[in-house]
Amino acid sequence: MPIKPLSFQGLILKLHDYWSRQGCAILQPYDVEIGAGTLSPMTVLRTLGPRPWKAAYVQPSRRPADGRYGENPNRLRQHHQYQVILKPNPENLQELYLGCLEAIGIDPKVHDIRFVEDDWENPTVGAWGLGWEVWCDGMEITQYTYFQQVGGLDVFPVAGELTIGLERLSLYLQDVDNVYDLQFNDEFTYGDIYLANEQQFSSFELEVADVDTAKRQFEDMEREVPRILAMKGRQGQSLALPAYDHVLKASHLFNIMDARGAIAVAERQSYIGRIRDLCKMCAESWVTDEGVN
């Protein structure tokens, strides 16, 4: 570890620098509420179809049910994931990944790095893959997956995905116990920047958000997706990208209803199934166009 540990923002910059050198497009976060970096269309849709793809981005990931009003030292309703997606996965992806750890100061001759079986699955987007959780000294620092299916469709060429939980990794690198005490940079702590968000949004999502409104909006989104997909763009293409934004919104509305405790156990599977169906429609529409291109 360097004498002065990387700040939160320093960590992101190092990762950007490293993956940029591997030929990745460094993207800006997707601007719709998203539960995980994987769900960004830059991963979900771009892994489908035959075209190669290389990208890296930070994705603020919102999970309303995890809100703790800023009072819990390591639970957040919004954390940040660093997402790398490479399609087809290069043969030396494991070596590239280990290179990225060295770039942020994790020396594999001092730290115990392990690849521990973990079969990744996301029923909401009908996706699964095989890979590992990567452990550093017993801590999970990365989800490493070879995507096999997305939106119920086979992914070929196969895409390799790396997802790094930035807060957790940063806590480790800075040797800090409370996420709000992380140095964001030399001037600000993580708390200076995000504590107010955690406090206000936790109250909103756990108490204030109106369930009826969310439900109504969810149903709106559910109607919109097939309507949008039935239309064609000016150049004759399908409108999978805007349709998929509506799926993301539906997914976030579901998460809000869930955080408000408004989803009964019995309804849960049905909601997830509805979102998966919408997602599958978008995936199929996207692939049809990609195949033509």
């Binding site: 087809p88 996965n89 893959g129 095989l130 070879y146 096999q148 060429p157 196969v158």
Partner: peptide, 12 residues
């Protein structure tokens, strides 16, 4: 699973 552009199936 398969990986990259290969169709060969193996555990990893």
């Amino acid at each position: 699973m398969t990986s990259g552009v290969s169709k060969l199936k193996w555990v990893r």
